[in-house]
């Protein structure tokens, strides 16, 4: 008996996690997929009716806005956060005296709820109160910064806040990467008189390719899941100018009583994640196994 136990304990202890994730994720996704094929409105119905929820979804202008916002937001957020994070890491890698404390400060935004820090951003970006007034006070009377309430630009304020939240995290990843670059190679390059910028672009940055990949995966997953950021700062507004797929789904399920639409939008989001993120994850897996 004890022998049997010892042999099977590894599998037994893994089973609860395995089962929980299996049921929780796939079981419920299957349910959502099923509902997306029905005529459910306020309450779920289980008679399959075909793909009409999806045609309705693609015809909805609001969904168009949400998907467009996801592309704009996702692309800008990922690129800017990566570039800023890399620059911050290089800055912190210059033998700064109080590096430990600074690293913590850079990471703080990531540790705090965006629901809460969104308050400060609302104030800063508020045309009547924050940045606009401060700059006008400096003598630039004509300075205008009303992106938060301008339907054409509101999504960019979400990008600003998201970059603020995540660039410290990217910095920490890159900083660890910079530290792991072989210092012998760098010394050799320095002895050969190669300029510092060239050392960075030709040796250090290329050697951190795996970190770019991890950062990309985490950032894209943050972008697709961004929900609290929008809720805290604009609540999807003005109008539905800053809707993202997650807030669209939320609005359909809980304020519009349109469960079928909510389910089909959730399935499309799922598809987007699968096509973008999962291939990267598996390529990562393969290189690690080699």
């Amino acid at each position: 008996m004890t022998l049997w136990l010892e042999r099977h304990v590894p599998k037994l202890v893994l089973a609860p996690s395995f089962a929980a994730i299996l049921l929780f994720v796939y079981g419920f996704i299957a349910w959502t997929g099923w509902i997306s094929l029905t005529k459910s409105r306020l309450m779920p119905k289980y008679d399959i009716e075909g793909v009409q929820q999806y045609t309705r979804l693609f015809d909805a202008p609001r969904w168009d806005v949400a998907m467009n916002n996801l592309y704009i937001f996702g692309a800008l957020f990922i690129v800017i956060a990566m570039v800023l994070g890399l620059l911050l890491a290089i800055l912190l890698d210059q033998k700064i005296r109080t590096e430990g404390v600074l690293r913590t400060i850079y990471l703080y935004p990531m540790a705090l709820s965006m629901i809460v820090t969104g308050t400060a951003w609302k104030w800063i970006l508020n045309p009547g109160l924050g940045l606009e007034k401060v700059v006008q006070g400096w003598g630039f009377e004509n300075f205008k910064f009303d992106w938060l309430v301008n339907p054409d630009y509101a999504i960019y304020t979400i990008v600003i806040a998201a970059v603020w939240q995540s660039s410290g995290f990217v910095m920490a990843l890159f900083l660890a990467g910079l530290r792991s670059v072989d210092s012998e190679i760098i010394k050799a390059a320095q002895v050969d008189g190669i300029p510092t910028t060239r050392i960075y672009t030709a040796i250090i940055i290329p050697s951190m390719a795996p970190i770019f990949l991890s950062a990309f995966i985490v950032l894209s997953h943050l972008a697709i899941k961004s929900f609290d950021l929008v809720i805290a700062m604009t609540n999807g507004g003005p109008g539905y100018a800053t809707d993202l797929p997650a807030t669209y789904m939320y609005a359909m399920a809980f304020s519009r009583g349109d469960l079928g639409q909510a389910a089909s939008s959730a399935m499309i989001m799922m598809l987007v994640v699968f096509t973008i993120v999962v291939p990267y994850l598996y390529s990562e897996l393969r290189t690690r196994n080699d």
């Binding site: 590894p10 996704i29 959502t32 939320y250 399920a253 897996l285």
Partner: peptide, 29 residues
């Protein structure tokens, strides 16, 4: 400590579920 052939796959699979948007399972829950 007791890895099997499938350990890496299981781990990656678990992690990949974290990538899925939570909205997909919100309503059933």
């Amino acid at each position: 400590f007791v890895p099997s052939r499938r350990t890496k796959d299981i781990l990656m699979w678990m992690l990949s579920t974290k990538m899925l948007p939570a909205v997909g399972v919100l309503y059933p829950i």
